[in-house]
Simulated assay, not measured.
Amino acid sequence: MIYSTLDVMGIITAASNIRCGDNPEYTEDTFYTAYPQFNKTDTAGNRVIPAVVVSGWVKLAHAALSYRRYRDYWEMAMGLFIAHWLTLYMQSAADPGDATSKIINAGLAKGVQTSKSAGDLSVSYDFSMMTGDFDGWGTYKYTAFGQQFITIARLVSAGGMCVW
């Protein structure tokens, strides 16, 4: 039997479990509607998270998340993906006028706070609590948004595939 190039490509695409195609529209405004807490402004009316940062994460989400893979979960996955990365952005944000050490500290990874003291200021963090079920998912396990995203990603990627 002779197969055409289109037949072979169709077989390979189906077997690969890769989904291609264009995504529906999803904009910064779509994100802000679902997650208004990220649309804060300061006293001067400037957005706390610069528009260029939000726009960048929306574009990256479009590139990383295929509607054909997520289907009905796609819009939720887009929002959780963007919210996760903006949360990490906010954790690392610092005022440009701050001391260098404070700017550096804002960019350091943070674990789950396990204890704190008032006298001589002592805070303990546990990083091991954020692993386990989400091993292999990088930073997504560090935020509630990322953990929800992982759960949805697992749902849409479940199932086997067979290559002949």
Rank of each mutant, 00 (worst) to 15 (best):
residue 49 I to N: 03
residue 17 N to R: 15
residue 50 P to N: 10
residue 7 D to Q: 15
residue 39 N to C: 12
residue 6 L to F: 07
residue 27 T to L: 08
residue 50 P to E: 13
residue 63 A to F: 08
residue 11 I to L: 08
residue 59 K to Q: 12
residue 23 N to Q: 06
residue 12 I to G: 00
residue 28 E to C: 09
residue 51 A to R: 10
residue 17 N to M: 10
residue 35 Y to R: 11
residue 45 G to V: 04
residue 25 E to S: 15
residue 24 P to K: 05
residue 39 N to F: 01
residue 58 V to N: 03
residue 63 A to D: 14
residue 29 D to Y: 09
residue 35 Y to L: 02
residue 33 T to I: 11
residue 14 A to W: 01
residue 23 N to D: 06
residue 36 P to I: 05
residue 58 V to I: 15
residue 12 I to D: 03
residue 19 R to D: 02
residue 33 T to P: 00
residue 60 L to W: 02
residue 4 S to A: 12
residue 5 T to E: 13
residue 9 M to T: 00
residue 4 S to G: 15
residue 20 C to H: 10
residue 13 T to K: 14
residue 32 Y to W: 04
residue 55 S to E: 11
residue 50 P to V: 07
residue 40 K to M: 14
residue 16 S to E: 04
residue 8 V to K: 12
residue 62 H to N: 14
residue 12 I to R: 10
residue 52 V to L: 09
residue 12 I to W: 04
residue 60 L to K: 15
residue 48 V to G: 04
residue 9 M to A: 13
residue 6 L to Q: 14
residue 51 A to C: 00
residue 36 P to L: 06
residue 18 I to R: 15
residue 16 S to G: 09
residue 11 I to E: 12
residue 14 A to F: 03
residue 24 P to R: 04
residue 55 S to A: 12
residue 8 V to Y: 04
residue 57 W to F: 15
residue 50 P to R: 13
residue 43 T to S: 12
residue 46 N to T: 08
residue 57 W to Q: 12
residue 61 A to D: 04
residue 38 F to Q: 03
residue 43 T to V: 08
residue 23 N to F: 05
residue 51 A to S: 10
residue 42 D to P: 13
residue 6 L to V: 05
residue 20 C to R: 13
residue 60 L to T: 12
residue 8 V to E: 09
residue 6 L to E: 15
residue 38 F to I: 08
residue 44 A to M: 07
residue 10 G to E: 10
residue 61 A to E: 01
residue 10 G to Q: 11
residue 61 A to M: 07
residue 40 K to Y: 09
residue 51 A to Q: 12
residue 31 F to C: 01
residue 63 A to V: 02
residue 30 T to E: 08
residue 51 A to E: 12
residue 33 T to W: 00
residue 18 I to K: 14
residue 13 T to C: 01
residue 46 N to W: 00
residue 52 V to H: 11
residue 19 R to P: 00
residue 12 I to F: 07
residue 18 I to A: 14
residue 10 G to F: 01
residue 46 N to R: 02
residue 34 A to D: 07
residue 16 S to A: 10
residue 48 V to H: 03
residue 34 A to L: 11
residue 24 P to Y: 09
residue 29 D to I: 05
residue 61 A to G: 14
residue 27 T to K: 07
residue 23 N to T: 03
residue 61 A to N: 03
residue 50 P to C: 01
residue 11 I to R: 14
residue 41 T to E: 13
residue 25 E to L: 14
residue 38 F to V: 02
residue 13 T to I: 06
residue 58 V to T: 09
residue 56 G to H: 03
residue 63 A to H: 07
residue 58 V to G: 03
residue 7 D to L: 00
residue 7 D to N: 07
residue 63 A to Y: 09
residue 48 V to P: 07
